[in-house]
C-alpha cells in the first residue's frame, strides 16, 4: 500500500508552469489597457463618423430646404386651383341642357294632347353627402280623341324611355287622370304628370372616413 503525504502548506506551493504569474500580470497590465484603448479609439472613430454623417445630411437638407418649401407651396396652390377648377367644372357639367329637354318634351307629347301648363323647377341642395341639382317637372294637359287614356300613357312612356329622358328622369308619375269639369268638354280628359329628375351632383360625394383608411 502506497501512502503519499503532502507536507507543503498552500502558501508554499509553486506553479509548475514555465510562465510565471508575475509575467502574466505584467502582460495583462499592458494588453488589457491596450485593448481597451483600441476599443475606445474604434468607438471614438464611429462616434466621429456618425457626427460627420449627421452634419452632412443636415447640411444637404438645409441646402434643399428652400427649394422643397417652394415646391410644397406650389403643391398647395395647385390643390387649391384644382379644387376651384373642379367646382366650376362640376357646375358646368351638372346643368340641365334646357334646349334638349324642351325639344324632347315637344317630341314626347302626342298630337292629340294639349299641354295647359309645363313647369320645371330646379333647386341646388344637399344630396346625401354631396351638393347637387334636383328638379321637378309638372305637366298639366287635356286630351281628346278616341283613346285619351292611351295617349296619356304614351306620353308617360315617352317621358320614361325616350331620349333624353332616361338619362334625366328618376321617377315619372301620372298624378291625375280625370274627365274635364267644363260642361262643354264631356269627351275631354285632363291629366297631371309629375316627374322627378335625377340629382346632378356639383361635386363628388364626400368619402366615408373608413374609405380613406
Amino acid at each position: 500500500m502506497n501512502l503519499q503525504v503532502d507536507f507543503l502548506l498552500d502558501s508554499e506551493r509553486r506553479s509548475g508552469s514555465s510562465v510565471s504569474p508575475k509575467f502574466v500580470i505584467r502582460l495583462a497590465a499592458i494588453i488589457v489597457p491596450a485593448v481597451l484603448l483600441g476599443l475606445f479609439m474604434i468607438l471614438s472613430t464611429a462616434y466621429q463618423v456618425s457626427k460627420h454623417d449627421r452634419n452632412t445630411v443636415e447640411q444637404e437638407k438645409r441646402q434643399i430646404d428652400p427649394e422643397y418649401r417652394k415646391v410644397i407651396n406650389l403643391e398647395k396652390e395647385l390643390k387649391e386651383a384644382q379644387s376651384l377648377a373642379a367646382a366650376i367644372q362640376g357646375w358646368k357639367d351638372s346643368r340641365l341642357d334646357a334646349y334638349r329637354f324642351l325639344r324632347g318634351l315637344q317630341r314626347a307629347v302626342p298630337l292629340s294632347v294639349q299641354l295647359t301648363q309645363g313647369v320645371l323647377n330646379e333647386k341646388v341642395e344637399a344630396v346625401e353627402s354631396a351638393v347637387g341639382r334636383t328638379a321637378m317637372l309638372q305637366l298639366k294637359g287635356r286630351v281628346g280623341g278616341a283613346s285619351p287614356e292611351a295617349d296619356v300613357r304614351r306620353l308617360y312612356e315617352a317621358l320614361k324611355s325616350e331620349p333624353p329622358f332616361p338619362d334625366l328622369m328618376e321617377q315619372v308619375e301620372v298624378k291625375r287622370f280625370a274627365a274635364s269639369e267644363a260642361r262643354d268638354e264631356q269627351d275631354i280628359r285632363v291629366f297631371d304628370i309629375e316627374c322627378k329628375l335625377k340629382p346632378r351632383l356639383l361635386m363628388a360625394p364626400a368619402r366615408p372616413a373608413s374609405a380613406t383608411k
Partner: peptide, 10 residues
C-alpha cells in the same frame, strides 16, 4: 356656366 333653373310655359 349659365343654367336655366326654372321654366313655366302656359
Amino acid at each position: 356656366l349659365l343654367s336655366i333653373s326654372a321654366i313655366n310655359i302656359v
